[in-house]
Every structure is written in C-alpha cells, then in structure tokens.
C-alpha cells in the first residue's frame, strides 16, 4: 500500500462516480412518481410544470411582501392577521401555488414580525418545512441536520456563525415549524431607507433576512454581498 501513498487522497474522491450513482431516495421518488402518473393522480406534464415552478419561484415574493408592508401600514396589518389572504395581493395563492391544480402541503402561512425586543428565526427540526410559495426552495444549509439540531438548541451560536450578533436585551425566538404552519420573518426596516420605493426596499429584503439569520441593511442587496465586500 505504501507505493500508493502519494495519491491516497484520491480514494473515494471521484466526482464523476458520485454524480452517476442513483440514491435510494431518487429511485423511490421515481417509482412513486411513475405509479402516480399511471394511476392518473397527476400527469407527467403536471409534474414537469410543478418542478419548473418549484425551481423558479425564488424569494422575490417574500421580498415584495415585506417591502409592501414597510410602505403600507394597512397592508402590514392584513399580512400579520391573515398571511395566506394577504399574499394574493402580490399574486401568490397558497392553495393553488402553481396555478395548475397540483395539490399542496402548504396550508397556513404566518408572518413573524421582528421588533426591537424580539428577533424571530425559522427552522424545521423534523424535516425541512419552508414557505416555498414566498421564498422558493430552501438553501442547502437549511436542510442539514447541523442547522436543524443546533438552531433549536444553540440559536445564538448559530446566528453568530452567520455573522449575526444580537444584543443581550433582545429575545431570540426560534420557530420550529413542525405542523401545518409555514413561517416567514418580517425584519425591521433598516436606517438609511427613508423615502425609498417598494422596488428599492424589496432589493434589500434577501432570503436570509426572511429566514432570520441576517438583518437587512441599506447597502446590502444580496446574501452573498457581504462576502464580496470582505473579499474586496
């Protein structure tokens, strides 16, 4: 074995091998999907359209909701009182999110308002429940056991890993979405945004600020923005 020592680190590190392997879950998904199509529960076309919708939805709907709520106190009230209904005002229908009749597991939507006293953050310890009609697909880290286990148990440490250090007089409130409810955080409107239009405001309401692992800033329009700034 000693003569192979030099390239030992290549063992089990072949990217092409990894991508050509089909996992048990992929086989399971394919089998269930084919059965559902054969039984007429949905068509292959429905499935393709759902996948296209799910992959394309993104966090823009959520950004729009927050920007509108910051600009319009009456809308903010409606959004906090009945999130599912208020979403229709920006064109998001939770009961028919795709508009093609694909059944949805999203049932109730609630917006969590941050205040100077309370900072909200969302997690799903059981799986990866996420408000997809407003935020799109969840980021990979949101679905990892590391985030799910630790966010409920050591939220301040996890937030610090995201660069978010909250003052001691702020209550950190973790929301574990384990049932039918889906949550989104409404961050506080930052300083330096006075007089901004809804479109301008929406640009700083990034995905991470609506999960609760970051705060919006007037000079930050992307979750990757702070990294780029550091690299400069």
């Amino acid at each position: 074995m000693a003569k192979h020592h030099g390239d030992g680190h290549h063992d089990g590190h072949n990217a092409f091998d990894v991508s050509s392997k089909v996992s048990e879950f992929e086989i399971l998904e394919l089998a269930v999907r084919e059965l559902a199509i054969e039984k007429g529960i949905f068509s292959a076309e429905d499935h393709r359209r759902f996948a296209e919708w799910a992959e394309g939805v993104g966090p823009h709907g959520g950004s729009k909701l927050v920007a509108k709520a910051w600009s319009d106190p009456a809308f903010k009230q409606r959004l906090l009182e009945n999130g599912t209904e208020a979403c229709k005002e920006v064109g998001i229908d939770w009961l028919q999110p795709t508009g093609v009749g694909t059944p949805s597991d999203y049932t109730f939507f609630y917006v969590l308002e941050n205040t100077p006293q309370v900072h909200n953050v969302i997690v799903c310890t059981l799986c990866s429940c996420y408000p997809r009609p407003v935020l799109g697909m969840s980021p990979d880290w949101y679905r990892t056991p590391s985030y799910r286990r630790r966010m409920v148990r050591r939220p301040r440490e996890v937030l610090a890993e995201f660069g978010l250090h909250l003052p001691a007089d702020v209550e950190v409130r973790v929301h574990d979405s384990n049932q039918k409810s889906r949550f989104m955080v409404m961050p506080m409107r930052p300083e330096g945004t006075e007089g901004w239009s809804e479109e301008q405001l929406a640009r700083i309401v990034t995905r991470d600020t609506m999960i609760g692992v970051a705060l919006p800033r007037a000079d930050r329009t992307s979750d990757a923005g702070s990294l780029a700034e550091q690299a400069r």
Binding site: V152, R153, R173, V174, H175, Q179, S181
Partner: peptide, 18 residues
Amino acid sequence: LWPDYTGLAHDTLETEAS
C-alpha cells in the same frame, strides 16, 4: 427545554402540538 442552555434566560422557542 435545555438545562445546559448557553443563550440568555429570556430566549424562547415556539412550536405546535395537537
């Protein structure tokens, strides 16, 4: 929830049950 919780005493967690 966690006897060895390392955050602050006023931190909370919300979840749902039937």
